[in-house]
Design a protein around this nucleic acid. Structure first.
Lengths: 129, 129
DNA sequence: ATATCAAATGATATTTAATATTAATTATAA
DNA sequence: TTATAATTAATATTAAATATCATTTGATAT
């Protein structure tokens, strides 16, 4: 983190960030809460909510909403998601090519000031088929 | 609708479908409820929920989840969305080119059986900037 | 035209995700 | 070490969505 920003490194915050940086399954708040509780048994779910929002606002993690629920991931590079319609599992798909293609296509849209783009792919994963 | 499927055309269902087919603002359930209530004053919100789900399952409308809330639209062709980060307004972006490009890119992903794709563009709309 | 019956409705209760409030606690910098 | 601003934890509240179920309705066969 950026020392000029005066960020407090509390135990809770460190554990939440650590949990997420070792987890590429796109966990929900509930998942993070359950995971972190193993080390910090007295942590409150509100703290998990607050810190996930906070860490995302600082750009240290990324929030992604899938089918109405927020999920969090350590991969902060622009990327896309492949989502299983059946089990809901999510896999990252990094493709600068796709991001660039999308942004290039949208340039003609003068009314909107486009800043970012992301593509979701829906299908059936190998486990489910 | 498909007559072989034995679908009941209730007043409520017809009004909900009609409301949506004249509305390209991607209304929420609440929006649809408020809109339809003008004609069917005694309609229940549960009925709106049920019918929107039903109509989407029949492919007559499309459900899209933006920032955690479900929205519904009459445009059932594959398309993409441009979303204002500030006011939340949503504009359709039809581009077979982008859909095809995306699907073509993902073909190498043998584990997943990809069926569809959609891209969200985030930015600031003309009103907000 | 009427009876039948599965489907749909509406009212309400419940669940779930997320946010808000606030007193007590804690991390940092002076 | 102290001051103080941020953070925590517990709880309350809100909002979206789903579940339940008695009653009603619409399509079909007669």
């Amino acid at each position: 983190m950026n020392e000029s920003e005066n960020i407090k490194y509390t135990n809770q915050r460190v554990e939440i960030l650590d949990f997420l940086q070792n987890n590429y399954t796109h966990p929900t708040v509930e998942d993070v809460y359950e995971g972190v509780k193993k080390k910090l048994t007295r942590i409150s779910k509100a703290t998990v909510y607050q810190n996930l929002k906070f860490l995302a606002s600082k750009g240290l993690i990324q929030e992604v909403n899938i089918k109405g629920v927020s999920r969090f991931e350590p991969n902060i590079k622009p990327h896309h998601h492949i989502i299983c319609k059946n089990c809901g599992s999510i896999v990252d798909f990094e493709s600068k090519e796709l991001t660039d293609f999308s942004l290039d296509l949208i340039k003609k849209m003068k009314e909107f000031n486009i800043e970012s783009t992301n593509t979701n792919f829906f299908g059936i994963c190998s486990k489910c088929k």
